[in-house]
Design a protein around this nucleic acid. Structure first.
Lengths: 178, 178
DNA sequence: CAGAGCATGTAAGAGGTTACATGATTAC
DNA sequence: GTAATCATGTAACCTCTTACATGCTCTG
């Protein structure tokens, strides 16, 4: 059900085709909610049936035609109602921590190599986020409410990557001793 | 498939009944991998069929009987092989960030109240982790490899809660201005 | 002319959630 | 006697992932 609202949140920002949404879920929104294009197209069909969104066919000559989806007033109302409800605490699912939990079964070098891989990934993602911050949010004090909220989601991403980097360093330090 | 390995990781630590595992997935392991008791019992049946674990019936007079599951040598081998494989990057799913992303649609007070609720939750969880750290890992330099790895998963939890707390404070500060 | 990007789907299967169900013992 | 804890399951449903499928245009 949350995917429906994630799509509504994206469409509240701007009208999108299914393809556009799939790209959004590979970037921006996708930094904290993932979805494949198959999920998206299925959900779009259901949302349109419920009249929370409306599709408009766009004919294009240079590219394949597409359907642009707009959020309807009913959709906006539903999205507002959802936002106002208290959220359930999110469920963490970290495969790497399950592996580390049983790390006593393998040579430390195995865990160390994995932590280094992990560190590289988070380092890269942090660089991406910092670039986005510089480009789109150079002066955070000047942002309107909506932009400010979106900026805060980016700030969350930055802190998230930093937390992983710091932990990787701590873990690598502690495993190096063994 | 990962749930199977999470269960193996728990059983590698000590033999458990389904009920014990369900409790583990509410604590320790559950801090980074969640599962309901229904998932656990289903998976246990499959793991036993594959001979990665073995159940032993324990008759009890004061309580209902139970089945204690032990990991088999084949199970340990499979777990080791899984740990050695590189992990896929984990997928973040943060409902609260989706809501904040569309936070421009509601009054700031709505987002602020939600962030305060969130802050309280993470504050509490951090306190729980700190208590565990004091109780079970008073002297981290003395830990054997296996314990050291488990300690690092707890350290991850502590840093995770701290990251959320810090971000909540930043977000609350930025929304207070609006 | 090959590959990347645009654009949209179907289908099968794996994994996860929620509700229903039972029945004993122990602690307040 | 009421609630909590121990202990284990079935069934239905929803969600998510993976694979397969098509066909056009633009760029190098």
């Amino acid at each position: 059900m949350s995917l429906a609202y994630a799509i509504l949140a994206a469409l509240a920002d701007r009208a999108c085709s299914g393809y556009d949404l799939a790209k959004s879920f590979d970037a921006s929104l996708g930094y904290f909610w993932t979805a494949t294009h198959q999920q998206i197209y299925r959900e779009l069909a259901q949302l349109e049936e419920r009249q929370w969104i409306q599709g408009r066919a766009i004919n294009q000559t240079d590219r394949p035609n597409k359907t642009l989806f707009h959020i309807t007033p009913e959709g906006t109302t539903a999205l507002r109602a959802w936002i106002t409800q208290p959220s359930k605490p999110s469920k963490v699912r970290e495969e790497i921590l399950v592996k580390l939990f049983a790390g006593g079964l393998v040579a430390p070098a195995v865990s160390i190599a994995e932590l280094q891989r992990l560190r590289r990934g988070h380092h890269q993602q942090l660089a991406t986020y910092r670039r986005l911050e510089k480009t789109f949010f150079a002066d955070p004090t000047q942002l309107a409410l909506g932009e400010r909220c979106q900026y805060l989601t980016l700030r969350n991403g930055i802190r998230y990557e930093q937390y992983w980097l710091d932990w990787c360093d701590e873990a690598l330090g502690m495993l190096a001793e063994a």
